[in-house]
């Protein structure tokens, strides 16, 4: 493997694992990472859903049928966790909404509005530390921010939705 290929490999490996590695350390999240997001698909696929316990149970049953390593006893707990985090109380995505101009406008539209309504974000009103925490939390939950654009996005949020 050439140096370039090696570098690409480690870049990709770190990108693939970034959302998992920074997540909360409780057992159910680790189980989800081991069974789902490190194996078959990325975390975004989970984070965008808005399902109740019955809906998540149906999805988990399908995934178990497709080979996901989730024991029967873990399934109920995982369904409850997912329904608590990713349910119908979350706003619909709104990526076709008008947004303020700025260097990271595209990143804001694709990385944030794929899951949230502009007005919800505008209500947060945070300082730099607050927006940094919010962005990092979203990355942990599966948001994709193009490499090298996180600080631009935080600047954009601070400029347009400051305290």
């Amino acid at each position: 493997m050439s140096k370039v290929n090696l570098a690409i490999f480690f870049l990709v490996w770190s990108l693939a694992d970034i959302a998992c590695a920074q997540g909360p350390a409780d057992a159910i999240v680790q189980k989800m990472e081991a069974a789902c997001t490190r194996v078959c698909h990325g975390p975004s696929l989970i984070a965008q859903q808005r399902l109740d316990v019955a809906g998540w149970t149906r999805e988990l049953n399908k995934m178990v049928g497709w080979g996901a390593d989730i024991a029967g006893s873990e399934k109920e707990e995982l369904s409850r966790y997912l329904a608590e985090k990713f349910n119908n109380t979350r706003p619909r995505p709104s990526s076709s909404q008008a947004t303020p101009e700025g260097k990271a406008k595209n990143v804001f539209q694709t990385s944030c509005l794929g899951c949230h309504d502009v007005t919800l974000i505008a209500r947060l009103k945070a300082d730099r530390a607050g927006w940094t925490r919010a962005v990092e939390r979203m990355v942990n939950w599966g948001a994709y921010i193009p490499p090298g654009r996180k600080e631009d996005l935080i600047d954009y949020l601070l400029t347009n939705f400051a305290q």
Binding site: S44, N106, G114
Partner: peptide, 14 residues
């Protein structure tokens, strides 16, 4: 995703 499709909304990275 990071280069060619940089302006698209990533519904699923993989």
């Amino acid at each position: 995703a990071a280069t060619i499709k940089k302006d698209l909304i990533i519904r699923s990275e993989s």
